[in-house]
């Protein structure tokens, strides 16, 4: 749990501070210096419009990581609410929520996100909408599963007998029990959101230029693959490193939880 929190902190810090330490304006066009190789002025070189790639990468962290964080947290809240509704709201609510979940899961989420974002028109708003609408189901399933098993647990029975309100029961008895598993799912969905944002950006359906977003940067870089192949490496590497770090933290957390369960 701690490693995940630390990692999330590092990413938030990167998204907040990245732009502050960037040496140049990420959108400043400088045609005279276009496609420069790495050098003392431009540590990673410049792109086709002469913009500093390092600065764009650092600013891009705000888009790629910040948006992914936002999307995964919205999904977390949505999914948790749906899962609690399914577990606590009676048979009918359960059936409706679970069939909705099935419907949304029936489709590969990235393809669904492409369709949604594309149909609604490119832009950050539809990007967020598309990735959250397709990103809440796993939380809902986990919450429902644990929620149903909690319902017959002694302390939940006691709380109900005492007349504690459903909201207070959710807050005091469900959330602490859900937290570990939700964190594991959240790491997966955070990584997924980073990949989704870059994929949509690459297809041109995501964050719009001139905003520096890693997927959009790759779309720009692709055209100049022959002359400046390195330009294509950096944004992709940034995505891989972030996703890898999150996945590793998530795996470690999951293994720890599994170990604890075995002990208990």
């Amino acid at each position: 749990m701690r490693s995940v929190i630390v990692l999330a902190g590092v990413f938030v810090a990167l998204a907040v501070c990245g732009p502050l330490v960037a040496p140049h304006d990420p959108t400043a066009i400088n045609i005279a210096q276009r496609l420069s190789p790495p050098g003392p002025d431009w540590i990673l070189g410049t792109d086709a419009l002469g913009r500093d790639i390092l600065s764009r990468l650092l600013h891009g962290a705000r888009w790629s990581l910040g948006l992914a964080f936002l999307i995964s947290v919205i999904g977390l809240c949505m999914g948790t609410l749906m899962g609690l509704l399914a577990a606590q709201g009676g048979k009918l609510a359960d059936w409706i929520v679970m069939r909705t979940t099935d419907t949304f899961l029936a489709f590969p989420d990235l393809v669904a996100a492409v369709v949604i974002a594309g149909v609604l028109g490119a832009g950050t708003g539809s990007l967020i909408f598309a990735l959250t609408v397709t990103g809440w189901m796993r939380y809902a399933r986990v919450v429902r599963g644990i929620g149903l098993s909690l319902q017959t647990r002694g302390y939940v029975v006691q709380a109900k007998l005492a007349g504690l309100s459903p909201l207070a029961i959710a807050r005091w008895h469900y959330l602490p029990a859900l937290m570990p598993s939700l964190t594991v799912v959240w790491t997966g969905m955070f990584a997924r959101a980073i990949l989704g944002i870059s994929a949509l950006g690459f297809l041109g359906f995501g964050v719009q230029p001139p905003m520096p977003e890693w997927g959009t940067m790759l779309l720009d870089a692709r055209i100049h693959m022959r002359s400046t192949p390195l330009q294509m490496i950096w944004p992709g590497l940034a995505v891989v490193i972030c996703v890898l770090a999150i996945n590793l933290a998530g795996d470690a957390l999951r293994d720890r939880l599994a170990g604890q369960e075995e002990q208990a």
């Binding site: 647990r153 002694g154 302390y155 029975v157 006691q158 007998l161 005091w172 008895h173 602490p176």
Partner: peptide, 13 residues
Amino acid sequence: PALVMQEPRSAFN
């Protein structure tokens, strides 16, 4: 009504 459970530990979160 109040209940004293047969398995005492499970009654507490």
